[in-house]
């Protein structure tokens, strides 16, 4: 039976300020969803909230996988239940080698009951698997020995996120603007990579402003978020339309949210620049 990620009437605040104002969404394993919306509409907020970022406070609503509530679980427990986020801004962890990090991560995700200090998956198998995945993604195997994201270019960081996705094979993958800031070659690599990985065992939520990723990974559902609410849901053609014509029509169809958006932007114009 395929798993279900169910988000019900989610309200989220950052520093006491409400950002998400009632988001509901259901994603099944095997489905691809696109989430689109103007800058500052709350896309990353939703992504961070799903993986349990402590700064994002759920004030009401629920997140469940197959009926198991995630609200009170920490990011580690959520990851072990199959949640994954490809970060919009992956951080650098100095001195930690990609291979060591991934070996720990893969061990924990595959044996969710593992305690600290218990043994890791065998080195040989892991090395082989890592090498295969890196080659599939057209990555230099040398990267395994580098420190995590240290000195990586934008494209290398995003590829590293996809590599982690490939190694961890989560049930639900959220990709937060994984295609932003990349040249077209890199976008192709990432898009093809995702296409190979996404299958009946993975539910995918793609946050994007671009078309390319969606051409390779055609969404069954496209959601539009405006001022912290999902205001429309359609199919792949909606993504296409938004890409070609922008959000003006959406704002016209949803004047209340558009007004809220303007209000929010006035208050937080500085913060919005930083966050985007």
């Amino acid at each position: 039976m395929s798993s279900l990620l169910k988000i019900t009437d989610l309200h989220v605040s950052v520093d006491e300020k409400p950002i998400l104002k009632g988001v509901s969404l259901e994603i099944r394993q095997g489905e691809i969803h696109a989430l689109m919306g103007p800058n500052g509409s709350g896309k990353s907020t939703l992504a961070y909230t799903l993986v349990g970022h402590p700064k994002y406070e759920v004030t009401s609503g629920t997140i469940e996988i197959d009926g198991v509530p995630l609200n009170d679980l920490d990011p580690c427990e959520r990851a072990r239940l199959g949640m994954f986020l490809a970060f919009q801004y992956p951080v650098t962890i100095p001195g930690v080698k990609v291979a060591d990090f991934l070996r720990h991560a893969v061990t924990n995700i595959r044996n969710p009951a593992r305690k600290e200090g218990e043994s890791l998956i065998p080195m040989r198998d892991f090395r082989k698997e890592l090498k295969d995945r890196m080659e599939e993604l057209g990555m230099d195997v040398e990267f395994a020995r580098r420190y995590l994201n240290e000195g990586f270019s934008g494209g290398e960081k995003k590829r590293m996120e996809i590599l982690q996705l490939a190694m961890l094979q989560p049930k639900f993958a959220i990709l937060d603007e994984t295609d932003s800031g990349l040249d077209s070659d890199a976008v192709r690599v990432v898009s093809e990579g995702l296409r190979k990985l996404a299958g009946p065992q993975m539910g995918v939520l793609i946050i994007t402003h671009h078309e390319r990723l969606l051409e390779y990974n055609v969404p069954q559902f496209t959601h539009v978020i405006l001022a912290g609410r999902i205001v429309e849901t359609g199919d792949a053609s909606l993504a296409h339309e938004l890409h070609n014509h922008g959000y003006a029509a959406v704002r016209q169809r949803h004047p209340a949210e558009a007004a809220e958006e303007q209000e929010h932007q006035k208050v937080t114009s500085k913060a919005a620049v930083v966050a985007n």
Binding site: V51, G52, H53, P54, D74, P75, C76, R78, A79, R80, M83, F84, L85, F87, P90, V91, I93, F101, H104, A105, N108, I109, P112, E116, Q164, L168
Partner: peptide, 11 residues
């Protein structure tokens, strides 16, 4: 957050 979201405990 980054490490924990990859299945690492806080410790």
């Amino acid at each position: 957050l980054y490490l924990m979201s990859r299945g690492m405990s806080e410790t």
